[in-house]
Computed example of a mutant assay.
Amino acid sequence: MARSKRIWSPEHFHHVGNRGNWQMNLFREEQDYFVFLKILQRTYELTKMEICSYCLMSNHYHLLIRTPHVPLSKVMSRINKGYTDYFNRKYEVSGHLFEKRFFSKPVYDDYGLLEVSSYIHLNPVEAQMATNLARYRWSSYHYYHSPYLKHPEFFNPFPLAQSFPGDTIHQKKEVYCKWLHKDYKLEHIHGPVLSEK
């Protein structure tokens, strides 16, 4: 049976994800996370893709990615193959690292972007891997929470931040974080931040 053709809308972001084969860990050590992020940076340099939200979990990842110049499938093939080659070489294994083709779904409006980014950024809390999102290192959330923190070139916060008030991109990112926490009712975790008007 032929596989369905992948939807690629160059002007829109896509929610993309993939999971380790047999749900095994994709990231076993801290270095593995760093290597995956380096692969994202190299892919950006070659394809000029952009990501406005991401989260790397132990056995899967989520990206909110736009690929205006190169088909999404080719971009993801580069990312997944690059990481698979690294993983197999490091851990002396072979075969499929990912359980199947990557999941992808285009996001057509600003509200959808916010909803998907909320899901992505809150993933560590849902999985009980973190209670303080700002301290989870493998997510783009900390680039919103600490607005002056230097971020990688592939990361573009503007598509999400533009939906919020503020005179600067930094102010808009701060308001995004407050919206995210109120939406998920995390007052008991982050307390004072949420009470600000």
Score class of each variant (00 low, 15 high):
Ile51Met: 04
His60Met: 05
Glu126His: 12
Phe158Ser: 07
Glu29Trp: 07
Ala134Met: 11
His15Thr: 02
His121Ala: 04
Asp110Ile: 03
Asn21Val: 11
Ala2Tyr: 14
Trp8Phe: 11
Lys100Ser: 15
Val175Cys: 03
Tyr61Ser: 01
Leu63Cys: 05
Tyr86Glu: 03
Tyr143Leu: 05
Leu37Glu: 15
Phe34Tyr: 12
Ser140Tyr: 08
Gln128Leu: 10
Lys178Gly: 05
Ala161His: 01
Tyr61Pro: 02
Arg135Phe: 13
His181Glu: 15
Pro68Thr: 07
His170Leu: 01
Val35Gly: 00
Glu30Val: 02
Tyr148Gln: 09
Leu149Met: 13
Glu50Tyr: 01
Lys173Cys: 12
Phe27Gln: 02
Tyr86Ile: 01
Gly20Phe: 09
Ile120Ala: 03
Ser146Asn: 14
His190Gly: 00
Trp138Asp: 01
His62Leu: 01
Leu72Ile: 07
Phe98Pro: 10
Lys100Glu: 14
Asn18Phe: 09
Gln171Thr: 08
Tyr44Trp: 15
Met1Val: 11
Lys150Ile: 13
His181Arg: 08
Asn132Arg: 08
Ser4Val: 14
Ile51Phe: 10
His188Tyr: 11
Thr84Cys: 05
Lys90Pro: 06
Ile51His: 03
Lys74Cys: 03
Asn21Asp: 14
Glu50Arg: 01
Phe155Lys: 00
Val116Phe: 10
Asp85Asn: 10
Ser140Ile: 06
Gln162Cys: 14
Pro192Ser: 10
Ala161Asn: 00
Glu45Ile: 01
Arg66Trp: 08
Phe98Cys: 04
Leu114Gln: 11
Ala161Cys: 04
Glu126Ala: 01
Cys55Glu: 05
Tyr141Met: 02
His69Thr: 04
Ala134Pro: 02
Val93Lys: 13
Ile39Asn: 07
His69Lys: 10
Arg6Val: 12
Arg6Ala: 06
Val107Ile: 15
Arg66Val: 04
Gln128His: 15
Thr47Cys: 14
Tyr44Cys: 00
Tyr144Ile: 03
Lys173Ser: 06
Glu99Ala: 02
Ser195Asp: 13
Lys48Ser: 11
Gln31Ser: 09
Ser195Ala: 10
Thr84Arg: 00
Leu63Tyr: 07
Gly95Ile: 06
Leu122Tyr: 14
His121Gly: 04
Ser4Leu: 15
Arg137Thr: 12
Gly82Ala: 06
Asn18Trp: 08
Cys177Leu: 02
Asp167Met: 00
Phe155Cys: 01
Phe155Val: 02
Ser117Phe: 11
Arg3Pro: 09
Pro124Phe: 10
Ser118Phe: 02
Leu72Ala: 00
Ile120Arg: 00
Glu11Val: 08
Asp110Gln: 15
His15Ile: 06
Val93Met: 13
Ser77Glu: 15
His14Pro: 12
Lys182Gln: 14
Asp32Phe: 09
Tyr144Pro: 08
Leu63Pro: 06
Ser77Arg: 12
Thr131Ala: 02
His121Asp: 12
Lys90Thr: 14
Leu40Tyr: 03
His62Glu: 07
Asn123Ser: 13
Asn25Trp: 08
Val16Ile: 14
His121Ile: 05
Glu30Ile: 02
Leu186Phe: 11
Glu153Thr: 11
Trp22Pro: 00
Pro152Leu: 07
Ile39Leu: 15
Asn123Leu: 04
Arg137Phe: 14
Gly112Leu: 06
Arg135Ser: 13
Met49Arg: 00
Asp110Arg: 05
Phe34Gln: 14
Trp179Leu: 01
Gln23Ala: 06
His188Met: 03
